[in-house]
C-alpha cells in the first residue's frame, strides 16, 4: 500500500485560507490503512480545521466526503454533485489521488493534506515499513522475498557492504540490515544457493529514472 502522513495543520491552512468553502475528501484505501487519510482522519482534519477557523472567528464552509478509492474515476465521480458547491478540494489521498481529482475536476484547485511517503506494509499496529521502491524489475525471487533495492540503504545487489553490526545498518541503527535479513531468510529456507546465481546490474530504465511510467492493457479497455 501507499503510506502517507498528515501535513501539519498550519501548512494546510496556508494553502486553503483563501477559499470560503472547502470539500475535504478522504480515501478509504491505502491511506486509511496507514491512518493518514481514511474516514477517521477526514473527520479529524475537518473538525480540527473548523475549530481552527472558529477560534479565529472565521466561518468557511468545510464539508467532508470519503471515497473508497481516490485514484479511480468510477469512485471519484461519487462527489460530482458536491464539488460545484465548493471553491476548492482538500484531498487526503496520496499524490496519485490528488492528481486524479485535479484531472477530473479541472476547474477546481486541489490541495494535498498528506505527505505521500512510500510503498510499504503494516508491520505491526501503528508501524509502517517501507519495503518496495516500485523499480519495475522485481528480483525478490533471488533474495528470499526481501528487497535489496528497498531494504538495503545502499541498494547493493550482490552482498552486504560489510558495515553493518549486529544486523543493524551502519546508515542508522534503527534500520535492519537488508542483507542480514536476506541471508538469514534464505538460510532458514535452505535456499542460500540462490545467492550463487548472478544478478545483473539493475536496469533503472524501468524505474522512475525513465520518467513517468504507464501500463496499457487493451484487454482491460472498453
Amino acid at each position: 500500500m501507499i503510506v502517507a502522513t498528515l501535513k501539519e495543520i498550519d501548512e494546510i491552512r496556508k494553502m486553503i485560507d483563501r477559499y470560503d468553502s472547502v470539500l475535504v475528501v478522504g480515501c478509504d484505501s491505502c491511506v486509511a490503512e496507514c491512518a493518514a487519510g481514511g474516514s477517521r482522519e477526514t473527520m479529524l482534519l475537518a473538525s480540527a480545521l473548523k475549530l481552527s477557523y472558529m477560534k479565529d472567528h472565521q466561518n468557511p464552509t468545510i464539508t467532508e466526503a470519503v471515497l473508497d478509492r481516490q485514484c479511480v474515476d468510477d469512485f471519484i465521480d461519487q462527489i460530482a454533485n458536491q464539488v460545484p458547491d465548493h471553491e476548492a478540494i482538500l484531498s487526503l489521498g496520496c499524490g496519485a489521488g490528488v492528481q486524479a481529482l485535479a484531472r477530473v475536476y479541472r476547474d477546481k484547485p486541489v490541495i494535498p493534506a498528506l505527505n505521500t511517503l512510500f510503498i510499504g506494509e503494516t508491520q505491526s499496529r501503528g508501524v509502517w515499513q517501507e519495503n518496495c521502491l516500485g523499480c519495475g524489475n522485481c528480483k525478490l525471487g533471488f533474495f528470499g522475498a526481501v528487497c535489496p533495492v528497498a531494504r538495503c540503504s545502499k541498494k547493493l545487489m550482490n552482498g552486504p557492504c560489510g558495515g553493518s553490526k549486529g544486523g543493524r545498518c551502519e546508515v542508522h541503527p534503527e534500520i535492519s540490515c537488508g542483507w542480514d535479513l536476506i541471508i538469514r531468510r534464505l538460510d532458514a529456507l535452505g535456499e542460500l544457493d540462490r545467492l550463487t546465481e548472478y544478478v545483473p546490474p539493475v536496469d533503472w530504465s524501468t524505474s522512475h529514472s525513465g520518467g513517468p511510467r504507464k501500463v496499457i492493457r487493451e484487454d482491460q479497455q472498453p
Partner: peptide
C-alpha cells in the same frame, strides 16, 4: 475524531 467533532 469523535472528540474533535464534538467540540467543532
Amino acid at each position: 475524531h469523535h472528540l474533535l467533532k464534538t467540540l467543532a
